[in-house]
């Protein structure tokens, strides 16, 4: 049984339909890339899984349990966490407080403050500074660390590379390997196709709210992706 499965998933912003009958699934421990152009519905897909955008109860199942009608704060406790686009650290909280609030739901597991600092030693050095005093890359690390503090079995990552220098992106993706080795399932939304496919087992390509291609990440056909990405 797949860990996460969506069936005929539809989502709306007001009257505007953003997702059309998405069939998406991820098995335990897999790393999945979700690629697509701007406005294709990648972030919407993550937000809907996470409960930030409403959908019908049976459209999203986690371990076979329908969770489509739950709120984000309930879903975190079940073992899904998200690193939101733009990092969204809490400005009035220090770095360490940001990490601690990540563990607010109280899920136990292997991730603790110490282990997060082990993974990102730079955060340990700056634990008491306001979160906004960190560099962009450090903020991204803090955002990932914050999500890990809830000990998720499924981690949703939205545009980790946004606005970061290539060398820092490389560091961050190296950390994703560590996280994946723990057995955590990863769903990675990325604009940077080669970066995403380099780490993923499988990928989904979205185009205008629909899945235009779903395939294993290795040995993909460049032409097919271009077709699925741009629709040309």
């Amino acid at each position: 049984m797949s860990q996460l499965k969506t069936s005929s998933l539809r989502a709306f912003y007001g009257d505007f339909q953003a997702l059309f009958d998405i069939e998406f699934q991820a098995d335990e421990g897999e790393t999945i890339a979700v690629i697509g152009a701007n406005g294709a519905g990648k972030t919407t897909l993550l937000r809907t899984i996470m409960g930030q955008l409403a959908c019908d109860r049976d459209m999203v199942k986690f371990d076979g349990r329908p969770i489509g009608d739950l709120d984000a704060h309930e879903i975190v406790g079940m073992g899904i966490a998200m690193v939101p686009e733009g990092r969204r650290l809490f400005p009035s909280l220090s770095v360490e407080e940001n990490l601690k609030i990540g563990g607010y739901c109280g899920r136990r597991g292997s991730w603790t403050l110490e282990r997060v600092y082990q993974l990102f030693p730079m955060l340990a050095e700056r634990r008491d500074v306001p979160s906004m005093a960190l560099s962009g890359g450090q903020q991204q690390m803090a955002a990932i660390g914050r999500a890990l503090m809830s000990n998720p079995r499924l981690l949703l990552c939205d545009e980790l590379s946004l606005g970061l220098a290539p060398v820092i992106i490389k560091d961050i993706y190296a950390c994703l390997d560590v996280i994946s080795d723990e057995g955590t399932t990863l769903d990675i939304v990325e604009q940077d196709i080669s970066r995403a496919l380099g780490i993923a087992d499988r990928f989904y390509c979205l185009q205008e709210g629909r899945v235009s291609l779903a395939a294993p990440a290795g040995g993909y056909d460049q032409a097919a992706i271009t077709q699925a990405y741009f629709g040309i």
């Binding site: 704060h73 990540g102 607010y104 809830s150």
Partner: peptide, 17 residues
């Protein structure tokens, strides 16, 4: 912390549970 997080950014605070 939860009070301050909810004050800063309620939607992201929801992501923390």
């Amino acid at each position: 912390r939860a009070f301050r997080a909810a004050s800063d950014d309620p939607d992201t605070a929801e992501l923390m549970g």
